[in-house]
Simulated scan of single mutants.
Amino acid sequence: MSESRDTIYADPLREAGLFTFDENVARVFPDMIKRSVPGYTTIVAMTGLLAQRYAAAGSVLYDLGCSLGASTLAMRQELRGKDCRILAVDNSPAMLERCRNIIDTDTHDTPVDLICSNLEDVNIENASVVVLNFTLQFIPLAIRNEVIQRIYDGLRPGGVMVLSEKVTFEDPHLDELNIELHHEFKKANGYSDMEIAQKRAAIENVLLPETVATHKQRIASAGFGSCDVWFQCFNFASLVALK
C-alpha cells in the first residue's frame, strides 16, 4: 500500500479543531507518525522482540490502540510456531478498515482479531503480552488507573506490558527543552512552523501527557513487580512492566 504524505496542517486553518483519527489521518498516518515521533520505528520493532520473549502458548496478545497495525505485525512476525492469537483494538473505524487491508496482505499465520471499541471497554483475559503504543495518552486521566489495573488483572503471571507515551517533565526547563527538540525533529522531517503550530493547537486538549514518574507510580500501584524505561528520545518514552 502506497504511503501518502501528511499535509493535513500545511494550509492555514480558521480553527484547528480537535485532532481525531478520521479517514484523513488514517490515509497519511504512517508518514505522520514516522515524521512526528522520534524512535517510533525502533519501539515497534522491539515490541515484536518483547512479544517473542514473553508470549506464552495458548495465550492472547493485545495491541490496544492498534491504529494501522504496526505493532500487531511486529508481534505477528515474531510468533512463529507459538499457539497464540492477537486482539488488535481501536475505536477508529477508518483506522481499522485500513488495518484489515494491511493484515490481509501479511503472510504470517498467527490469528488476528480486529475489534472496534474503546480500549477501556475491552476485557483483558489470558494475556501474556499487552501493548499500548501511544494510546494511554488519549484516554481520560480519570480512568487511566482503572485501565492499567484491568491490564494487570488480565495478564498471566510472567506476562509483560509495553507502554509507550509522549511524556512531560517536572523540571520546567527540561520540559521546554524537550518540547523544542521535538519541534526541531519535526522541522528536520519537513514540517513547517505553521504545520507544527496548527497540529499542536489541534492536539493539546486531546493528547494529555504525564511524567514518567506518574506512569511508574500507576504501574506499581496496579501490582506490577518490575517496571522501567527501556527507550526514550526527547519527550517520547517506552516502559516495560512485568507481572
Rank of each mutant, 00 (worst) to 15 (best):
194 M>G: 09
217 Q>G: 06
200 R>Y: 11
29 F>T: 00
203 I>S: 14
90 D>L: 04
188 A>N: 10
184 E>I: 09
223 G>N: 02
212 V>S: 05
193 D>I: 07
188 A>D: 09
56 A>Y: 05
239 L>D: 02
7 T>R: 15
25 V>H: 02
96 L>F: 04
177 L>P: 00
78 E>I: 08
99 C>Q: 03
191 Y>Q: 08
217 Q>E: 14
151 I>M: 14
101 N>L: 05
241 A>C: 13
173 H>A: 15
189 N>Y: 04
92 S>K: 03
101 N>M: 07
19 F>R: 12
40 Y>K: 00
162 V>Q: 09
122 V>I: 14
243 K>A: 08
55 A>S: 03
59 S>N: 11
56 A>E: 14
128 S>L: 08
104 D>S: 14
119 L>T: 10
228 D>Q: 10
8 I>Q: 08
122 V>Y: 05
18 L>C: 12
60 V>Y: 11
29 F>Q: 00
47 T>G: 14
129 V>S: 13
45 A>C: 10
230 W>A: 10
179 I>Y: 07
91 N>K: 15
15 E>D: 13
61 L>R: 06
97 E>L: 06
90 D>G: 04
200 R>L: 09
197 A>W: 06
25 V>Q: 02
27 R>F: 00
119 L>H: 13
107 T>M: 11
193 D>T: 10
161 M>R: 08
67 S>L: 03
84 C>L: 04
159 G>F: 09
201 A>S: 13
66 C>R: 02
97 E>W: 01
152 Y>Q: 09
29 F>H: 02
243 K>F: 07
17 G>S: 11
177 L>Q: 01
113 D>C: 10
110 T>G: 03
29 F>N: 00
195 E>A: 14
58 G>E: 12
138 F>E: 01
63 D>R: 01
111 P>S: 05
121 D>W: 06
171 D>H: 03
138 F>C: 08
102 I>H: 02
180 E>H: 08
227 C>S: 09
200 R>S: 13
75 M>L: 01
40 Y>D: 12
112 V>Y: 05
108 H>A: 13
